[in-house]
Amino acid sequence: KEFRPGDKVVLPPYGVGVVAGIAQRSVSGVSRAYYQVDFPGSRSKAYVPVEAPHSVGLRKAL
């Protein structure tokens, strides 16, 4: 896996977040693995496909 729990990442347009782990989510009846990204200071979460994280701009924070 490219990202691990605890990694600081950037996800446009949300900003800097932390990978909380990998979650299985069902979309249109198909279960897939997603990185769960939490954003400190907020209750917001984002789910990014493990198979294509760069397709939505997910990258490691510098």
Rank of each mutant, 00 (worst) to 15 (best):
A52R: 07
G21T: 07
V48R: 00
S42T: 13
G41T: 10
K45I: 13
Y47N: 02
V48C: 05
F3S: 01
S55T: 12
E2A: 12
G29H: 03
S55D: 11
G15H: 02
S31V: 14
A23I: 15
G15N: 01
A61F: 14
Y47H: 03
E2P: 09
S31N: 12
A52G: 08
Y14T: 01
V30T: 09
R4V: 10
F39R: 00
V18S: 05
S28N: 14
L62Y: 10
S31L: 13
R43P: 13
K1S: 14
V30K: 09
A46W: 05
K1M: 15
V50C: 05
G17L: 02
I22A: 01
K8E: 08
G41R: 10
Y34E: 03
Q36F: 06
H54M: 08
P53T: 12
S26D: 11
Q24A: 08
A52T: 08
L58E: 11
A20E: 09
K45F: 09
V18A: 02
S55W: 07
E2F: 09
A33G: 07
V50E: 02
R32W: 04
K45N: 06
V18F: 10
V56P: 05
L11P: 03
Q24E: 11
V27D: 10
A20T: 13
P5I: 14
Y14R: 04
G21Y: 03
R43D: 13
P5Y: 07
A46M: 11
L11A: 02
A52D: 15
P12S: 05
G29A: 02
A23C: 15
S42D: 09
S55P: 05
K8T: 09
E51Q: 07
A23Y: 12
K60C: 14
A61R: 06
G29L: 02
R4Q: 12
K45E: 06
G15D: 01
S28G: 14
V18Y: 11
V10T: 07
Y14E: 01
K1F: 15
Y35T: 01
F3P: 02
S26E: 13
G17I: 02
L58R: 03
Y14D: 01
S55A: 10
R59M: 05
A33Y: 13
G15T: 01
S31P: 08
D7I: 03
G57D: 06
V50I: 10
D7E: 08
Y34H: 05
G41A: 12
S44C: 15
H54V: 05
E51W: 11
V56D: 06
R43N: 14
A33D: 14
A46S: 06
Y14W: 12
F3L: 05
G15W: 05
V37Q: 01
K1D: 15
E2G: 10
S42A: 09
K60Q: 08
V27S: 07
S31F: 08
P12K: 05
K8W: 15
V9M: 03
E51M: 06
P13S: 07
E51P: 03
G21R: 12
L58P: 03
Q36V: 15
I22G: 00
G15P: 01
G6W: 01
E51T: 07
V18T: 08
V19L: 08
V50Q: 03
I22C: 04
P5H: 05
L62M: 12
A61M: 11
V10G: 01
S44P: 09
P13V: 06
L58V: 04
Y47I: 03
V27A: 06
L58K: 03
G17T: 00
L62D: 15
L62S: 14
F3W: 10
P40C: 14
D7W: 10
R43T: 13
P12F: 09
S44Q: 14
A52S: 11
S42V: 09
F3I: 05
A20G: 06
K8P: 07
P5M: 10
D7L: 03
L58W: 00
I22K: 03
A52E: 11
Y47A: 02
Y35I: 13
A46E: 06
Q24P: 04
P53V: 13
V27G: 05
S44V: 15
P53W: 13
G21D: 05
R25K: 09
S44G: 13
V48N: 00
L11V: 05
L11Y: 07
R32G: 14
A23F: 14
G15L: 03
R43V: 13
V30N: 05
G6I: 01
P12R: 05
A52H: 09
L58Y: 00
S31Y: 10
E2C: 13
G41K: 10
S28W: 04
L62H: 13
I22D: 01
D38C: 15
S26M: 14
V18M: 07
A23N: 06
P49Y: 04
G41S: 11
G17S: 01
L58T: 04
E2W: 08
K1E: 15
P5L: 10
Y34G: 02
S28L: 10
G21V: 05
S42M: 11
E2D: 11
G6V: 01
A52W: 09
E51N: 09
I22L: 05
S28P: 02
K60L: 13
E2Q: 10
A23T: 14
V37D: 02
G17V: 02
Y14H: 08
V19W: 00
S44D: 12
F39H: 00
R43F: 12
V50P: 00
S28F: 07
V50S: 02
A52I: 06
K8M: 13
Y34F: 11
H54P: 05
E51G: 08
R32F: 06
V50R: 01
R59A: 07
V16L: 15
Y35W: 05
V27M: 08
V19Q: 01
V18W: 10
V9G: 00
R59S: 08
S26I: 14
R25I: 15
S42H: 10
P12Y: 11
P49H: 03
G6Y: 02
V30P: 13
G21W: 01
R4T: 08
V9T: 02
K60V: 08
A33F: 13
V50N: 00
V10P: 01
V30Y: 04
L58M: 14
E51K: 05
A46T: 06
V27P: 04
R43S: 13
L58D: 03
K45G: 05
S44T: 15
G21I: 04
R32T: 10
K1W: 14
V48G: 00
R59C: 12
A20D: 04
D38V: 14
R4L: 12
Q36I: 15
S26V: 15
V10M: 08
K8Q: 09
Y14N: 02
A23R: 13
V10L: 08
L11H: 03
K1N: 14
V9F: 03
S28H: 13
H54G: 12
G21K: 11
G57F: 02
D38G: 04
D38M: 12
Q36L: 11
A33R: 11
S28A: 13
P12T: 04
G29W: 00
F39N: 00
S44W: 13
V18E: 04
V19N: 00
G41Y: 10
P12G: 04
P13F: 09
L62F: 08
R59E: 12
K45C: 15
Y47S: 02
G6S: 01
S55M: 11
V56F: 05
Y35Q: 02
L11D: 01
V9E: 00
H54R: 06
V50H: 02
G57A: 05
A23H: 12
V37Y: 00
K1Q: 14
S26H: 08
V37F: 01
G29V: 01
P5N: 06
A52F: 10
A20Y: 05
S44A: 13
P13W: 07
D38E: 14
A46Q: 11
Y47G: 01
K60R: 09
Y35P: 03
R43W: 09
P12A: 07
V37I: 15
A20Q: 09
Q36K: 09
V56K: 09
R25F: 12
G17P: 02
I22P: 01
Y35G: 02
Q36P: 03
G6M: 03
P40Y: 11
G57N: 05
R4C: 14
G17Y: 00
V48M: 03
V56I: 07
R59K: 11
A61P: 05
V19P: 01
L11R: 00
K45Y: 10
V10C: 13
K8G: 03
A52Q: 07
S55I: 11
G15C: 15
A33C: 14
R59V: 12
V48F: 04
V27Y: 06
R4Y: 10
P12D: 07
V30W: 03
V56T: 10
V16H: 11
V10F: 14
D7F: 02
D38S: 11
G15Y: 03
V16E: 11
S55K: 12
K60E: 12
F3A: 02
R43I: 12
G41E: 12
Y47E: 04
V19G: 00
R59Q: 09
G21L: 08
V18C: 11
K45D: 03
A23M: 15
V18G: 00
R32L: 10
R43M: 15
